[in-house]
């Protein structure tokens, strides 16, 4: 499923909303999550999961081809931890194609 399909699914369940409105809703939600992470805040959505930011210190890396040392600056990476209920839902017997 891609974003436009998500918007369509939600719009079809809410005939009183324009597709444009639903698009704005989805973008407002995602935008808020991104803005929070950009500030370094955590986003916790019970039953779904939590978004947080992890900080990686600067380090000396190697170019794997030439073996040359390269300095890699410090950076921050987004991180998502799946929520408990989500984890359970992915593995409950009803959810069809478990290996």
């Amino acid at each position: 499923m891609i974003k436009s399909e998500l918007v369509q699914n939600i719009a079809s369940q809410n005939p009183h909303l324009y597709q444009r409105d639903v698009e704005n809703i989805v973008n407002a939600i995602l935008g808020e999550i991104v803005a929070a992470m950009a500030r370094g805040d955590r986003v916790e959505l019970r039953g779904f999961g939590a978004f947080s930011v992890k900080h990686r210190p600067a380090r000396t890396g190697r170019n794997p081809r030439t073996g040359a040392h390269v300095s890699v600056g410090k950076k921050s990476v987004p991180f998502f931890k799946t929520g408990k209920e989500m984890r359970e839902r992915l593995n409950r017997p009803a959810s069809t194609d478990v290996a």
Partner: peptide, 17 residues
């Protein structure tokens, strides 16, 4: 990080925007 954003904050963002 200072703050934790929850569903309530996402609802507020949708409400505002």
């Amino acid at each position: 990080s200072a703050k934790t954003i929850t569903r309530a904050d996402l609802c507020e963002a949708v409400y505002q925007k």
